[in-house]
C-alpha cells in the first residue's frame, strides 16, 4: 500500500513537471513580436522567389517594376520553362521533349528517370487517343530497351501497357494513369529538372517557411503557452489556452 502511494506521488510530480510550462501573455508576446525586425526588401525577395519558381512570369515582371526587386533568375527562362510545363499538361509530350532539348540537351541526357517518365507519358497519350498500333510500336521500340536497363522502368512500362488490355479504361486498376494528375506529376517533374539545371532551387521558399512556422510553434508548445497563429491564411494571434 505504501508503495502504491509513493508511485502515485511520483506520477503526480512527473505530471506537474511536464505541465509546468512557461505562460506568455498576449501583451508580453506582442512586445516580443514588435522587437522582431523583418526587412521589407527581404519580404519582397521572398515574394519574387515564389513568383519566379512557380512560373508566374508576367507577375514577376510587374513585381520587378512595382517593387524594384530583382528576380534571382533570368525571366526569359521562365517563359521557356512554363511552355514545357504547359505542353506536358496539355498532353503534347513530343513537343515538350523537343522544347527541353532546345533549352538544354543535358537535362534529359543526365536524367534517365525523367526521360523515361516523359516517354511513358507519351505512351499514355497515345493510348488515350486510341492509337493502339502506334502505342505498341512506341512501347516496343522506345520504352522496352530502357526497361531492360532498369527494373523499376520495366514495371512502370508493364503497368502502362496494361491500359491496352481493358475496354473500359475508366474502370480498370491502372486507370489512374489516364488521370489529369499523372500529367501534372510529370509536368512538375520536368519543371523541377529545368530549375535544377538553371542552378535554382526547385521549390519556392515561402511554403517551406510556412511549414517551419508550424514546426516552430509545435516545438515551442512543449515549453510554453503563448499566443499562436493557428490559421495561416488569416495570420491572427489566438490567445493561449491556460
Amino acid at each position: 500500500m505504501l508503495l502504491f502511494w509513493i508511485v502515485i506521488r511520483q506520477l503526480a510530480e512527473i505530471e506537474a513537471m511536464a505541465t509546468s510550462k512557461k505562460v506568455i501573455t498576449r501583451e508580453e508576446w506582442e512586445k516580443k513580436l514588435n522587437d522582431v525586425k523583418i526587412r521589407k526588401e527581404d519580404m519582397n525577395k521572398l515574394v519574387m522567389n515564389f513568383l519566379v519558381t512557380e512560373g508566374y512570369v508576367e507577375a514577376a515582371e510587374k513585381f520587378r517594376m512595382e517593387s524594384g526587386t530583382e528576380p534571382d533568375i533570368d525571366l526569359a527562362t521562365i517563359t521557356d520553362r512554363m511552355a514545357v510545363k504547359k505542353a506536358v499538361q496539355c498532353g503534347n509530350v513530343e513537343d515538350a521533349i523537343e522544347k527541353v532539348n532546345d533549352l538544354n540537351p543535358e537535362i534529359l541526357d543526365t536524367n534517365p528517370q525523367l526521360f523515361f517518365h516523359l516517354q511513358q507519358q507519351r505512351l499514355i497519350e497515345l493510348i488515350r487517343n486510341g492509337k493502339v498500333e502506334e502505342a505498341l510500336e512506341f512501347a516496343q521500340e522506345e520504352l522496352a530497351p530502357r526497361g531492360e536497363e532498369n527494373q523499376s522502368f520495366l514495371e512502370e512500362l508493364e503497368r502502362t501497357v496494361a491500359l491496352l488490355a481493358f475496354e473500359d479504361v475508366s474502370n480498370c486498376p491502372v486507370g489512374e494513369l489516364l488521370d489529369i494528375q499523372q500529367r501534372l506529376k510529370t509536368a512538375s517533374e520536368v519543371n523541377a529538372a529545368i530549375l535544377t539545371s538553371q542552378s535554382h532551387e526547385k521549390d519556392p521558399k515561402l511554403p517551406s517557411l510556412l511549414k517551419m512556422l508550424i514546426w516552430a510553434q509545435n516545438q515551442l508548445d512543449e515549453k510554453a503557452a503563448y499566443p499562436r497563429i493557428n490559421d495561416l491564411s488569416k495570420a491572427m494571434l489566438e490567445d493561449p489556452a491556460v
Partner: peptide
C-alpha cells in the same frame, strides 16, 4: 505577421 511569429517562436 507570419514571419515575425516564426522569428519570435
Amino acid at each position: 505577421r507570419l514571419l515575425r511569429q516564426l522569428t519570435a517562436c
